[in-house]
Nucleic acid binder design. Structure first.
Lengths: 232, 232
DNA sequence: CGCTCTATTGATAAACCTCAAATACAGTGG
DNA sequence: CCACTGTATTTGAGGTTTATCAATAGAGCG
């Protein structure tokens, strides 16, 4: 029975543990430490090097970075099965990156020396990690391109569809995004202000394309929004 | 003597081959194919899967991506010793990414199956590749943040200093950026138009902070530009 | 010398930010 | 259940940055 088996099952579906036998996965998990996180709990702050560098999890966390003048930029949202490898693994630098739980989450964390040992012993893990980081790089490049070429409305539309893909749940009459997202969260993700996001969303709500209530967003007319996101 | 020894020497300084003995580096290089590229030559176009996926090189190449509506965005410039790993290594997708030589360059390319074989046989290479890709991701995240929070003048200043770091050569009275960069090149790197870049650069040229002639940019007053780039 | 490509410069317009003020909304303690 | 408080959202007015477009100038090349 028990949660432990569940964990392993969850891990075996993760990209990081692809092509690894269960006993090896188990060994790797046992090297790290499993931590539950309450909503809004901060896993690490400003890349705190005393804390852990690497992790896999259940739940959703927000990875963000704060500029010198206090503006917060969201690098990405991390969903179940994902992994985050900080540059800090390889170099021993510190980074102003902060990870915060958006909802009740569980993470498994390894520190620098642990993860290096794992990568030495299980080359497959390194290859999988490379694959994951390449995917993150690709995602970042696409968002960079969107930020360069598209205007706010399109970027909001793309963001909604992105969340539908990663955290969308079919509902009675629409698709519900399963993460509590404020206007500010969306704004920080696409590099605009919460005011502009608010204007866009209320416009779409008036048109009946979506519905928002207490941080939940329900997409009623996905086609309309997709159409918008692809507009040239 | 000879070019071959030079190649090895160059490679051993590269992040990708860190902690590898010379004979293994040699073996890895021999698996791939070494190609000379003339300026403006295109190494691969739109992620052409028939071509090679991975490479290390001498010279400078521009990695860019074209949007559906024809706007070209520069993902990054790749300098000697750098590596580019396309997502295509792991997945077998195609991407609209194009690599073009900015000056006479030499690259070593491996195809998908070759690089996978190398990573299996030399786990150290995989770890090094992970380190490189993490660095690229970090760079992209920083540029994303800059694009979100800074305005054009600051981004131009930061870009100049970035190029000074990677390709700056001390000159009689200033620092010369060793890559031919047009206003359009800079604009596509920071997500603006060549007009705006032109305005900024002519302003600084009038102030005597830099000098431009036939694609060459010479920084005369680095302090002034750094100051500008750090402005809050 | 004409051709092409790049850079400059100006005028205008659009998108978006900033700031302020009002409103809704959720949670708390009486 | 209600008033109170703090937070999220909406909406408006005005200003700024930057894109767009057009016209001109300069540089390199056959």
């Amino acid at each position: 029975m028990n949660t432990h088996d569940h964990m392993i099952d969850n891990f075996s579906k993760s990209e990081l543990f692809k092509n690894l036998p269960a006993d090896q996965i188990n060994e790797i998990i046992c090297i790290g430490s499993t931590q539950p996180l309450k909503p809004k709990a901060i896993l690490f702050y400003q890349g705190d090097p005393a804390k852990n560098y690497f992790w896999v999890k259940q739940g959703t966390l927000k990875l963000s970075q704060v500029t010198e003048d206090g503006k917060e930029i969201t690098l990405r949202y991390i969903s179940p099965g994902d992994m985050t490898a900080a540059l800090a693994i390889m170099k021993q630098k510190e980074y102003p990156v902060t990870a915060q739980a958006m909802e009740p989450s569980t993470v498994v964390a390894w520190n620098r020396s642990q993860i290096l040992k794992i990568m030495e012993k299980f080359p497959r893990v390194t290859i999988n990690a490379l694959s994951i980081v390449l995917e993150q790089l690709d995602d970042m490049q696409i968002r960079y391109m969107e930020l360069c070429t598209q205007q706010v409305e399109q970027r909001v539309a793309r963001t909604l569809m992105r969340f539908v893909r990663t955290s969308g749940k079919k509902n009675n009459n629409g698709i519900c995004i399963d993460i509590p997202l404020s206007r500010k969260d969306i704004a920080e993700y696409i590099g605009t202000t919460l005011f502009t996001v608010s204007r866009v969303l209320s416009m779409w709500e008036k048109k009946g394309w979506l519905k928002t209530s207490k941080g939940q967003i329900i997409i009623l007319e996905p086609h309309k929004i997709v159409e918008f996101s692809e507009e040239i």
